[in-house]
Design a protein around this nucleic acid. Structure first.
Length: 488
RNA sequence: GGUCCCUUCGUCUAGCCUGGUCUAGGACAUCAGGUUUUCAUCCUGAAAACACGGGUUCAAAUCCCGUAGGGAUCACCA
């Protein structure tokens, strides 16, 4: 029996997700139960919205729980009983409305990851187990719940390693069994700082301070000032600044990765590998593999830096491995949610199919498709021709590319019916006649249609773009570049 | 600062427990080449690490001690 016990004070971030993943995998491996518990004993900071969001994200990751969610705020009477028991036994005492537990023993415990940990009693002061508002503290609630719910293995973040001495002392005082503890190392930023939701605020603050004007930021001036003075890391302010300045915030929360077009299986695979590995050089695996191979003693002891490049790679491969019939609806959903400018392409079934084929191996995330495919949805007269690409593909060798493009345009104009296949045939024969390779015409064409030297395969590009747009762009290009050529 | 913990390529790590098979393996990133109508994919190859100093031993990445660096915690937050 394992559990994931987040405090619903914010979104589920990757560190929490990894903890949940390990606890989930361990339970599944042993045919045990994985339970979800909301540790909402902080009345001021907990919110139902956060609890809902955490569950939504766990579901997205396919980390299904067998019991819960239970809310600690609804179990107050239970904690009160145990607190009373400790007081009656003289092991705890009132202090200014709160209740403190006496820490007077040397504590040692075994951690499944870190080994034997021992702490001298003098290092720990008597600590609060019940706050003045009547709520138990985390320390009391967590051990009571774990014991009562039958949790056998507590898998949680390393920041709790030092707290564990307190937990063990409480457990012993109440005569409750100790679970097996396994603490996972932290996930850090590349610069070594701890990866946290505050990183978003940091980025926003830095950008805001460098910005010329903050007039566009729709936030109360006083709050904005507090934010800039580092007196607040408010998320609403962070988001408002990001929006006003067109800022891209670092992905920290599971939801951020979803919105950026990462696949849950890739994120999970990467997260699992951050601090754990099967020991046989296998890195790409699915959750079935993790469930069968997972073990606590293969969790590393040192903190790990979150490597976005590697995650990118994992995600790119996960995207590429998707069957087309899975990728298509997934991409469509993402574009419809985040990039409505692609609605027209999404609506045309056959074009969208080609579009998907074109980008499945090219985009590392679903979101990148929108960036890479931007030229498809640009207005025919809005293309900006990249000077370098124009020079290389059109102007070089006394405008060879330009003349070829003009000649090819005439043949293309006559192409009927319009299709990628037909266009491919045309390109082929056009090149054969001139005894040249296909790059000679594909290059100039590419510049005319995209403004740059990069596009998916020419035939797919032509079909998705359609005859009208294609011809309009070629004409536009010929006209624009000829002017430029005359100037030179 | 006290206490607890950690330290292998730039990064994630295998190896460490049970010293020799480690001229330290894999992955991401980087660089070079190949395939390709561009890009991406794909394929091949290269460069790249045992934090430092002592000790134990015939032999140390592996065991012991110390130093340095990093992290966590020391809340009526979890």
């Amino acid at each position: 029996m394992t559990r994931f016990a987040p405090s619903p004070t914010g979104a589920l971030h990757v560190g929490g997700a990894r903890t949940a993943l390990f606890a989930w995998a361990f339970a599944r491996q042993h045919n045990g139960q994985f339970i979800l518990r909301m540790e909402d004993t902080d009345q001021a900071r907990s919110s139902d919205q956060a609890a809902q969001d955490i569950m939504r994200d766990l579901k997205w990751l396919n980390l299904d729980w067998d019991a819960g969610p239970t809310y600690q705020s609804q179990r107050l009477d239970i904690y009160t009983q145990y607190i009373k028991q400790l007081c009656d036994a003289g092991l705890a005492y009132p202090d200014d409305g709160a209740v403190r537990f006496r820490m007077d023993k040397h504590i040692a415990f075994e951690d499944a990851v870190f080994g034997r940990i021992s702490v001298e009693a003098i290092e720990l002061e008597d600590f609060v187990i019940q706050k003045a508002d009547g709520f138990p503290t985390f320390h009391l609630a967590v051990i009571v719940d774990d014991a009562l719910m039958g949790v056998t293995h507590v898998i949680r973040g390393q920041e709790h390693l030092s707290n564990t001495a307190k937990h063990v002392a409480l457990l012993d005082a109440l005569g409750l069994d100790r679970p097996v503890y396994a603490h996972t190392p932290s996930i850090m930023n590349p610069d070594g700082s701890k990866m946290s939701k505050r990183d978003k605020a940091k980025v926003a603050r830095k950008a805001a301070k460098e910005a010329d004007s903050l007039g566009a930021v729709k936030v109360d001036a006083l709050e904005l000032e507090r934010f800039l003075d580092k007196k607040s890391d408010d998320m609403t302010t962070t988001l408002a600044i990001a929006e006003a300045l067109g800022l891209t915030l670092p992905e920290i929360d599971v939801a951020d990765f979803r919105d950026s077009g990462y696949l849950p299986q890739a994120l999970l695979n990467y997260l699992a590998l951050l601090g754990w590995n099967p020991g046989n050089n296998v890195e790409r695996f699915d959750m079935a593999f993790l469930v069968s191979h997972f073990s606590l003693d293969r969790i590393g002891k040192s903190n790990a830096k979150f490597d976005r490049d590697k995650l990118f790679r994992f995600n790119a491969q996960a995207v590429a491995e998707l069957p087309a019939e899975t990728f298509e609806p997934l991409l469509k959903e993402h574009l419809q949610k985040h990039h409505t400018a692609f609605d027209a392409i999404c609506a045309d079934e056959s074009k969208f199919k080609l579009f998907c084929q074109a980008y499945q191996s090219r985009a590392r995330t679903l979101d990148e498709v929108a960036t890479l495919g931007q030229f498809f949805i640009a207005g025919d007269d809005e293309l900006v021709f990249n000077a370098k690409a124009v020079k290389k593909n059109l102007l070089k060798n006394e405008g060879e590319g330009l003349s070829l493009l003009a000649a090819f345009a005439d043949e293309l104009e006559a192409l009927e019916p319009w299709s990628g296949e037909a266009a491919h045939g045309l390109i082929h024969s056009f090149c054969e006649k001139r005894e040249m390779n296909m790059g000679k015409i594909a290059g100039p064409l590419r510049v005319a249609l995209t403004g740059s030297g990069v596009s998916p395969d020419m035939d797919a590009t032509l079909e998705i773009l359609g005859k009208t747009s294609t011809m309009a762009r070629i004409r536009q290009c010929l006209a624009t570049v000829k002017v430029k050529q005359a100037e030179v």
